[in-house]
């Protein structure tokens, strides 16, 4: 019994310890951001690897999600004779929730895990140490550009997700199921508010981008420098980012869309 408590206690302290380390790392990253201004190339390179290379999965997923929304939405609405509102259902679901959240989850799986693995591997092969000994701060040179790239890319990816999703819903609803084209767009335009919905969705994806990239970069930097350690760190990135995004989504939704 006592052992169990001891274990729990140690685990608990461990959590705080990691959180503390992660926060310190974040402060280090933020304080070094200004050094990136004269070297945009570093950030651009990372936006490519984090954003551009995620485009395929985001576009494909967005299209499918939009199409499914069109299908399911139609099936439910048609019972109420309200299938003209399909556009609203698809657009609001995407812009408010699915766009930011699903994009963040996909990001964690594709880009987040890649970041963690890359940084962890650099740690294991002593590249980070070598940078330090060459008087180059690895946090500023390696971590900061990746952090900024993730933060910038996330809202763009989420917007692309929502946009192709709406088009996917259009394809299924109007193209295949016969919903009136005019009704699809006009009802949507009527009910989707720029500030309440689109703007809030962007805020969400910025918050998710912050959290997802922070976790990915921290886990890589904190990984045990062995192959097993890197693999565990990558798993942790995906799991923790997913949990954090979903939890944060609840909090943000309550704040933004609650009364």
């Amino acid at each position: 019994m006592l052992d169990l408590l001891q274990n729990l206690g140690r685990r608990g302290l461990g959590v705080f310890e990691r959180l503390g380390r992660a926060s310190l790392l974040l402060v280090q990253i933020l304080s070094g951001l200004h050094t990136l201004l004269p070297r945009p190339r570093l950030v651009i390179q990372q936006v490519f690897s984090v954003g551009v290379l995620s485009l395929v999965i985001i576009v494909v997923s967005g299209t499918f999600v939009g199409m499914v929304l069109g299908l399911q939405g139609y099936n439910t609405l048609v019972d109420f004779g309200a299938e003209e509102s399909l556009g609203v259902v698809v657009a609001l679901s995407l812009v408010r929730e699915l766009g930011p959240v699903v994009t963040a989850l996909l990001f964690a799986g594709r880009a987040g895990s890649a970041l963690t693995a890359e940084i962890g591997l650099m740690k294991a092969t002593e590249q980070l140490s070598a940078l330090e000994m060459m008087a180059v701060d690895p946090v500023r040179r390696v971590l900061a550009p990746r952090f900024i790239a993730g933060f910038i890319s996330m809202p763009l990816l989420a917007a692309i997700f929502s946009a192709v999703g709406v088009l996917g819903g259009y394809f299924v609803g109007v193209g295949l199921l016969g919903v009136d084209e005019g009704a699809y767009w006009s009802q949507m335009q009527d009910k989707v508010d720029l500030y309440d919905d689109v703007y809030n969705g962007v805020i969400k994806s910025l918050a998710f981008g912050w959290v997802a990239t922070w976790i990915a970069v921290f886990e890589g930097h904190d990984a045990v420098p062995t192959s097993e350690g890197v693999s565990r760190a990558t798993t942790r990135t995906v799991v923790y980012t997913s949990l954090a995004v979903l939890g944060l989504d609840f909090v943000l939704t309550a704040l933004m869309f609650g009364d």
Binding site: T125, E126, Q127, A130, M133, M134, A135
Partner: peptide, 28 residues
Amino acid sequence: ELRKRMGMLFQNGALLTDMNVYDNVAFP
């Protein structure tokens, strides 16, 4: 500043894997 006056050779070289030999040497 002091580290600029020290060079270190790591056990496995620790070259930056995303650039070629020339860029690695040119890095510092």
